[in-house]
Design a protein around this nucleic acid. Structure first.
Lengths: 237, 237
DNA sequence: GAAGCTGAAATTGCATACAATTTTGCCGTC
DNA sequence: GACGGCAAAATTGTATGCAATTTCAGCTTC
């Protein structure tokens, strides 16, 4: 279980913030599907697992609830979110609205340094793609999301960046729940094309590519309503 | 929703979720300018004021911090946010990106019931506008924001609605800090025109009106950088 | 008088204790 | 055997206590 503080790349981690650390680890586990939607996250258990008091565990869970990754029911506890098809649609509708704006801004502000980072990321994605096994698949999906977060960071708007972080995390949950092909949820060629457009500072093309990219991701979902007789229907066959 | 539980009548459903109630009251006070940016909000003081323990007060403050209305510094406490000009720009850039999408959705989904509610709200705005005194001015500004929140609710996307709630609240802070004319920050005629467009289901016009409306609000701000030698410059003349 | 230092007071971070609520297992009844 | 209710166990909501950190007043020194 020696998970090497995966979020250290953002470089912002102050020395002592255990709440944030627990939040990050749980978030990682949720978007990685190591914690299935609906799983109960009891304060005591989380606290014991990270060797902190319930106070700290509770604060971390509340942070996750604000992001929509966890649902807290009064007097009942915290559960990994289980987004409905409608919520899933809203996640992607929001992305379709926000990401174009971010990419347009990125196209104007992108530096050669940024481009280098994007290219490096694309290479990493391609590496994961060629590996085999469920771990590689998870890494690929995660890297695919990180690409969008890189773009968000380059947009230069911290507020939109935070919104995107939430939307990407929720997208992972949605894909885990409703993804059809499970694997190649993100066409990596499309990522390549987006970076190409950014390199040419071609905002219009970059925006168009991003929109159709999001369309492709959402097209891979099976969002047929199973809101009504969930349990009965699921157990019928 | 549960917004109008102001200074009194807390006996009934306040017992349900005191954290949320305190959060709402503080948020109200902040966007109403009754709490100036930079004001210290100590856990003990807040707790004593609402007659709860620090635990609950702390949770409410953390919620506000997530929304960007409060800044929490480790070991130092919570302060009403003091957005920089750059943050102010980002707030409005985000609104310019998100609100058109919301209004476009609202134009397609709006019901006659919704329109009635909007008209009623416009009437209320006009009432405030014709009253005199600082209280009426505050009520006018608040109502002006609530108009945008009504639109957000009609967009039918809960995620974007929440984003807008945060952005509107932060807009109030920004206007409080950088507003030039203090008062008529929202042209109410523009609100009228937007509702007219919605009534005609004319998404294109509604979107255009919203964008220029946001432009007008932002144009009323004085966002010249006072980041550098703030104090010295302020005391010089 | 201004700058610097020191210790007390105040405030936050965290753990823990206790009350309130929900969940669960058990048992009697039908 | 199923159903309903009751009490124990588990879990959350909240208050409070203690240690660590920061703030500040008062004192010393230059």
């Amino acid at each position: 279980m020696n998970r090497i503080d995966s979020t250290s790349a953002d470089g912002q981690h102050a020395a002592e913030d255990r709440t944030q650390a627990i939040h990050d680890r749980l978030r990682d586990a949720i978007v990685d599907r190591r914690l299935a939607p609906g799983t109960k996250l009891s304060e005591g258990e989380v606290g014991a697992l990270f060797d902190v008091s319930r106070t700290v565990a509770r604060a971390a869970l509340q942070m996750l609830a604000f992001e929509g990754l966890v649902r807290i029911e009064r007097n009942r506890g915290a559960f990994v979110a289980n987004p409905s098809p409608e919520e899933a649609r809203q996640v992607f509708a929001s992305r379709r609205l926000i990401e174009p704006g971010i990419v347009a801004a990125a196209a104007e502000r992108v530096t050669t340094d940024d481009l280098a980072r994007l290219r490096a990321h694309l290479a990493a994605e391609r590496r994961h793609m060629h590996e085999r096994g469920p771990d590689a698949r998870r890494a690929e999906i995660k890297a695919s999301g990180e690409f969008h977060l890189l773009l968000a960071a380059m947009g230069g708007n911290a507020i939109l960046q935070r919104f995107m972080e939430e939307l990407i995390a929720r997208s992972f949950l949605v894909i885990a729940l409703y993804g059809r092909s499970g694997a190649s949820s993100c066409g990596h060629d499309e990522h390549d094309a987006i970076v190409d457009a950014l390199e040419r500072r071609d905002a219009a093309v970059a925006v168009a590519l991003v929109v159709s990219h999001i369309d492709h991701i959402e097209a891979d979902l099976d969002l047929r309503a199973r809101t009504g007789p969930t349990l009965k229907a699921a157990l019928a066959p």
